[in-house]
Nucleic acid binder design. Structure first.
Lengths: 117, 117
DNA sequence: TTCTTGACCTGGAGTAACTCCAAGCCGGTA
DNA sequence: TACCGGCTTGGAGTTACTCCAGGTCAAGAA
């Protein structure tokens, strides 16, 4: 799979994928005889995971640690598990931020409604 | 109220407040005889709203439009309402992103668990 | 009164995480 | 042979802060 396909499959832009690879976030990307990147099924799954971690606010540094562990093989699974559990807590905090903001919006909109009468 | 108090009351950092003011996001900030900023109750409420909008992903450009409308007075309330309704939809999208990511994490963690046995 | 301290000021440099662009290569079609 | 689309790299630009240097000001201590 070439970069544009990997991009539309994962959700990341081609530029972002190249950038992530340069930053060590995407291990084991092969090259074809033409010198261009070829992404395996596993590569694309990894990119998709990165996409969702980024979308939900995981910082690059954490992704870097996570990718380094991933590259080292199965004995790092406990450490990776810890990172994902940590991120899961972040998701919970984000959800309560959304709820808090929604509340504020609703109150604000009510005030607007009153003005409009 | 001085900037440091406004900061801890709103959630924004003092640096960010100064930056926002420079970018036109905070109308009507007064100065004391010492040349320092004095934030009214209304200022602080506005900053708090900006804090939550930022936390939940409203882009600066939108905040800028929103602030410009706010500065123009009550006749812009319909336009401001539209912006907040729009943002409310963004919140809904974010919430479903969080759900989607949580799902992925759960699956991933299950796979890890299997490995650990 | 002079000194120090702490909070604030401005302008500008630095940072994170992309994002875009120029210039060039490669394989395939007309 | 000429062109085209998709890929390459290196580097510049962007967004939204974030930090810092150097300076002002008011208040309390010596």
């Amino acid at each position: 799979m070439r970069i544009s396909e990997a991009a539309s499959a994962s959700g990341l832009k081609a530029d972002t994928i190249r950038y992530y690879e340069a930053e060590g976030l995407v291990p084991n990307v092969m090259r074809g005889s033409d010198g261009q990147r070829r992404f395996s099924r596993e590569n694309v799954e990894w990119l998709t995971l990165l996409y969702w971690l980024r979308e939900t606010g995981m910082p690059m540094k954490v992704m870097q640690r996570f990718a380094a562990l991933y590259a080292q093989g199965d004995e790092t699974i406990p450490a990776r598990k810890a990172i994902l559990l940590d991120h899961s807590e972040r998701l919970a905090r984000r959800r309560s931020d959304l709820d808090r903001c929604e509340e504020i919006l609703v109150r604000k909109l009510e005030i607007y409604e009153e003005y409009l009468r």
